[in-house]
Design a protein around this nucleic acid. Structure first.
Lengths: 235, 235
DNA sequence: GCATTTACTACACGGCGTTCAGTTTCCATA
DNA sequence: TATGGAAACTGAACGCCGTGTAGTAAATGC
């Protein structure tokens, strides 16, 4: 059962490829991830990498999954550092951790949410989809906690469960019985609201016109929390 | 004064290069813009293009400017189709035109707001900056019209003019005397709010989990308009 | 008519993803 | 422990790419 020496070496090499790829990405952005550069850094030939990843997009897909998972781990941990009954604090913690992570890993943000690479199109399933599902579920949980206060302002729209992905809908109905699809819509809108300013900032569209992006984001998140019927924390 | 035949031909060729570049982009995304492909399409050599644009990034920069300008023209036109005293309608028109344009020109949206191309970094000045300035000014004008209703909810944050770009600040103070910097902050937050869901949708992050992105965007914009102290139009 | 400027070609360089035939290295089994 | 076979890797190639540079053909201005 213990993996053979060959398998261990193989796993180690695959790991090293990913590590170097992430290093190259951190230094030069997602486009700097080239199989040739990775091979060069490892003292190998470009062709050798094909023994581990069938194509460059396969490697990118794996990286997207890992980075996305790291992001979701981070925001979930920040959220769980607040008590479960502090709905506003948990939203704020999630949002704050998201920006902190994004500023610390700008290229990772681009990898996950941008055009990872020239012609890259994310595959349907895969690790990226799992991380995204976790993110959507996490956001919906935040909204579920706030829903008693938010329903007055956001319960009048009309959505059906069929407006959302099979998996997400099933998860929400199992995890939050009685929560209407309107709440999922609000969760996804919340996602967009967190994403907007961050994307503008990280792609350099904000810096020429605004020198205090952190304040903008903080106020936007406060407004979001207020819009959920909650009271924004003072810190 | 009338431009010589040489100059006319030259301008025509430069125009053709841009047109073909936009066609390639519409077909295969911003990364499909390659000087060799353009030259091939024109029956020229790749090197010949260098007579018109010093580098590929120069061409990209020009395209970003043109596409961005087209976008701003579009949203401004939609806004101006509503009466000047219909603040809510003008916000809605702007937002609606933005999404319509983005769905009609998805690759243009990516060109302007994403990583236009592998190692591309937008230059400081240039046509893109001018279009962005127009967009920010337009958004601020929308907020200025709503400010009497919005100030109660959004006037308590603290910003200074130095928190914003020189040019933007000067423009706003000239155009909207008495408008505080908090309104500019609100305008930029509004920009982010419009951008977020759109970016998620156009980069394919929404489609696996939400099948009614238009409804999400509509409701988000309604909420935005309400948050500005205005009454969302019914249409 | 001629000299100059302009537009363009042809070619080269290095980098990229990807493929493939051939070689080396390691492991399990006889 | 020797050997057969699999796995890992090399080296070279193909066709893309951006970008220079030297040379050529044509249009222009005097």
């Amino acid at each position: 059962m213990t993996r053979s020496r060959r398998e261990r070496l193989r796993a180690e090499t695959a790991r090293e490829i990913k590590t170097i790829a992430l290093k190259l990405m951190a230094e030069g952005g997602p486009d700097a991830i080239s199989l040739r550069a990775i091979a060069r850094e490892m003292g190998m030939t470009a062709g050798a990498v094909y023994g581990y990843y069938a194509t460059r997009d396969d490697l990118i897909t794996t990286l997207v999954g890992e980075v996305y998972t790291d992001l979701v781990d981070t925001v979930e941990a920040a959220r769980d550092a607040r008590p479960a009954d502090d709905a506003a604090g948990r939203v704020q913690a999630w949002a704050g951790a998201l920006r902190t992570w994004a500023l610390a890993n700008p290229q990772g943000f681009r990898l996950v949410y941008g055009d990872p690479v020239p012609g890259y199109r994310p595959p349907e399933g895969g690790p990226g989809a799992a991380a995204r599902a976790r993110a959507c579920a996490g956001l919906t949980a935040l909204i579920a906690a706030a829903w008693p206060h938010a329903r007055a302002a956001h319960g009048h729209t009309s959505y059906q469960w069929s407006d959302f992905g099979e998996e997400l809908g099933a998860h929400v109905r199992a995890e939050h019985p009685g929560l209407p699809p309107e709440a999922v819509a609000l969760a996804l809108r919340t996602w967009g609201r967190m994403h907007g300013l961050l994307a503008l900032e990280l792609y350099g569209h904000l810096s020429p016109v605004a020198f205090a992006p952190g304040a903008l984001y903080r106020d936007e998140m406060r407004d979001l929390i207020r819009s959920l019927g909650l009271v924004p924390p003072v810190d």
